[in-house]
Design a protein around this nucleic acid. Structure first.
Lengths: 108, 108
DNA sequence: CCTTCGGTTCCAAAAAATTCGAACTCTCGG
DNA sequence: CCGAGAGTTCGAATTTTTTGGAACCGAAGG
């Protein structure tokens, strides 16, 4: 009864560098984060990019990002709102997100 | 005859962000890099830390770092000299190494 | 209510990474 | 030439990740 036991998110100081780096070592996952840099997005909207990817796979991507503490994933009407935990990340690992996403990489 | 076909190292512009992040997502591998921040080190010397870890495992760690383009590994007398490819990394991903290694993380 | 839409969870199969012993290589000291 | 020392490579076993179908869940809409 205690306020929905929604999806688990690590607290700011539980965010592990290892998990963050691991989560962001995948181009698809980085792409999701890139889309969230400018603000929250509904999941449907956000990863509309690749329609060929099954829902369960997309969901798994989000799970890895969420459990690493990179994004927040909360119910929003009938879909899910995804938010980059920028402040938490910046406070915990200053400059990291910047460095990773200003990297203009060639075809990964 | 063309100068020993030594261990393969990616060229600077072949270094992939994904591989770098992946390689550094492991605490042991980060530890190696941390020890190289102040300058090259002989392998024997560098990872003397954990004597319980088998040679082949240590060697594998180095391989992942080397193939990601993070360290250079070249013969040096009877052992191997490990060097952080700092300039290459900084040029390719400005601020990344800094951000990762200034992160004072709690027990990983 | 009953459906549909957007997603998560469950589960099993496939792919990738880690681990480590054993064999091999190279260099230096005798 | 014969070790010994420092590492790499090979192969196999184990563990972790990824992938995707199918079943399930909650919030509108009709």
């Amino acid at each position: 009864m205690v306020a929905v036991p929604e999806l688990a998110h690590p607290a700011r100081d539980e965010i592990q560098l290892s998990s963050v780096l691991f989560a962001l070592s995948d181009p698809d996952r980085r792409e999701v984060v890139r889309q969230l840099l400018d603000g929250p997005l509904d999941a449907a909207n956000c990863f509309a990019s690749d329609p060929s990817m099954p829902k369960s796979t997309k969901s798994h991507l989000m799970k890895v990002l969420r459990e690493a503490g990179i994004i927040r994933n909360e119910p929003h009407g009938r879909n899910r709102r995804l938010t980059l935990r920028r402040a938490d990340l910046d406070s915990r690992f200053p400059g990291l997100i910047d460095a990773i996403f200003t990297a203009h990489e060639p075809p990964d």
